[in-house]
């Protein structure tokens, strides 16, 4: 069975890699298998990991104290009104709840992690080239993200410096991430040449 799994994985990997040449029936086959199986797996995983332990099991074991779980359960059921032409509008309630909750939670999280933490980390003494570059970069990049002021004159100059900072940071991130992708490729090659073809010892 293990050998069958290795052969299946190797052949599907080659089918996906055939995309590098052009779109072809082998890639289409692997793509549809991948999408279909993963979508089905997701449904089963959601039922077993979310629906049963968080809703069904608590309601069955202690309905008296957990009756409030009917509210999210009802919101979940309302999503299925997407299939009804007449009652389609009921879908908007669970969507509004999820969107509002997401936005509300994100406001404080972003303010804390992205704004306050950045401000605190940038308030450094200007006693080294590193600190001067850091403070200058943060301030110039912030000016670039001013949308109500045209990037002309002094504002334009500072914003241009901000763009330079951004591009240098992107270049560094690009190189770093490409290295990580190469390691993924190496992993796949080890599977094909080692586990499958036994060419690697």
């Amino acid at each position: 069975m293990a050998v069958f799994g290795i052969w299946l994985g190797a052949l599907l990997t080659l089918c996906i890699y055939s995309f590098l040449y052009r779109d072809n029936p082998l890639y289409k086959f692997a793509e549809h298998v991948y999408v279909g199986i993963s979508a089905g797996y997701f449904v089963a995983a959601e039922v077993h990991n979310v629906l049963l332990p968080n809703l069904i099991a608590p309601l069955r074991s202690d309905f008296g104290h957990r009756f409030y779980l009917l509210v999210p359960g009802l919101l979940g059921v309302m999503v299925f009104f997407a299939f009804s032409r007449r009652l389609n509008w009921l879908l908007r309630y669970p969507l509004s709840f999820v969107v509002g909750m997401g936005a509300g939670l994100t406001v404080t999280a972003m303010l804390s992690a992205d704004v306050m933490a950045q401000v605190q980390a940038t308030a450094l003494p200007l006693n080294s080239v590193n600190n001067v570059l850091l403070a200058g970069g943060v301030l110039a990049t912030l000016v670039y993200f001013f949308f109500s002021a045209e990037h002309k004159g002094a504002v334009g100059g500072v914003a241009a410096a901000g763009v330079w900072y951004l591009m240098i940071a992107f270049g560094a991130a690009f190189g770093y991430t490409v290295m990580a992708r190469i390691s993924l490729l190496i992993g796949r090659m080890q599977f094909l040449l080692g586990d499958w073809l036994h060419l690697l010892r």
Partner: peptide, 24 residues
């Protein structure tokens, strides 16, 4: 709201500049 966000950014810049000055 975009204009308001710009002013909030200006406030953040002011706090950063004040922080840098104090730490220096």
């Amino acid at each position: 709201s975009i204009k308001g966000q710009d002013w909030a950014k200006a406030a953040a810049i002011a706090v950063i500049v004040a922080g840098i000055a104090l730490e220096t």
